[in-house]
């Protein structure tokens, strides 16, 4: 939303639930420096949700919402799954229509917003589970990449169908015993990051959500690259602690184990040479901007 539209009518301000008053006063819409460090310092764009206690999807959502470069001009597309229990609580417009069609919906949405707002960068971000991204929706995921659609796809990879009770998914590890995989999964975890790279994604990253600064950087990269070049893909390991039998405190350890050397989620990042150059330049610009801002603040303090 053009940032100036996020305000409460003065005459009815005192009727609005305080979380909305906070959102208008203290959320970081429009703040160029927003990032995961704002969590705890500012009003988050997410209200209480009904994920299981300790579910890593929850912290992943918080990092992502805190790190979006321009939430006031972002629209999410979700899909059926545990994530869709969170989206009604998110203070960024978002769409849920069917299970698995998220990248098709996002393709139409991104194009419509481009037509309607030719001069505004409206970011479209898909955020869906692994079942939605890789199994039922794989065609739409990949075809949107083939077409070069300019939006970011994020997959919350919990290696199973959580919302329907823990069934086998394409991103599940080989051999894992789950519902509908009664003798263990018989084929390998689908290599979606590599498929993404080969299918036209200009930037691909695969990681866990154990390190917030990394999640922030990857998300910002993906969105900036999507604006300029085309499709980008992020796969985040958000283990379903409920279905793999972990306690609510154990999600972080699970992620750390899996990203250690030899693990399934060792951080990887693919990008084209053009994108590498572009991101280098963006980083430099960002540094300069921050330096200038610091200087200006110092000057102002002096004066």
């Amino acid at each position: 939303m053009s940032i100036e539209k996020i305000k409460i009518s003065e005459a009815l301000h005192d009727l609005m639930p305080p979380e909305y008053q906070d959102m208008v006063e203290d959320a970081t819409y429009g703040n160029q420096d927003r990032g995961w460090k704002d969590i705890g310092e500012s009003k988050e764009l997410i209200e209480q949700h009904s994920l299981c206690a300790g579910c890593p999807e929850s912290i992943a959502f918080r990092y992502i919402l805190a790190s979006l470069p321009a939430p006031e001009n972002t629209v999410f597309v979700g899909s059926t799954g545990c994530t869709s229990l969170v989206f009604p609580m998110v203070a960024v417009h978002n769409i849920h229509s069917l299970f698995g069609n998220q990248n098709a919906v996002a393709s139409g949405l991104k194009r419509a917003l481009k037509i309607r707002f030719p001069d505004v960068e409206k970011d479209v971000v898909v955020l869906a589970g692994d079942g939605a991204t890789v199994d039922i929706g794989l065609d739409y995921t990949m075809q949107s990449w083939f077409r070069g659609e300019k939006f970011t796809t994020i997959c919350f990879d919990n290696e199973l169908y959580a919302n329907t009770g823990g069934q086998e998914s394409g991103l599940m590890q080989k051999g894992f015993v789950a519902k509908m995989a009664p003798v263990g999964k018989l084929f390998d975890k689908v290599r979606l990051p590599e498929i993404a790279r080969e299918s036209g994604c200009h930037y691909v990253a695969c990681l866990t959500v154990s390190k917030p600064n990394r999640v922030e950087k990857v998300l910002k990269n993906a969105i900036l690259v999507a604006r300029e070049f085309g499709p980008t893909y992020i796969q985040l390991y958000t283990p379903c602690i409920l279905e793999i039998g972990k306690q609510s405190m154990e999600g972080l350890d699970e992620m750390k184990d899996s990203e250690a050397i030899g693990g399934r989620f060792v951080f990887k990042e693919y990008m084209t040479d053009e994108v590498k150059e572009f991101l280098k330049q963006k980083d430099a610009e960002e540094k300069d901007r921050k330096k200038a801002a610091k200087l200006a603040a110092k000057e102002a303090a002096k004066a």
């Binding site: 597309v77 069609n101 919906v105 996002a106 139409g108 949405l109 991104k110 194009r111 419509a112 309607r116």
Partner: peptide, 8 residues
């Protein structure tokens, strides 16, 4: 659907 959700 996506385009219509976006006002087209």
């Amino acid at each position: 659907a996506g385009a219509a959700f976006g006002g087209a």
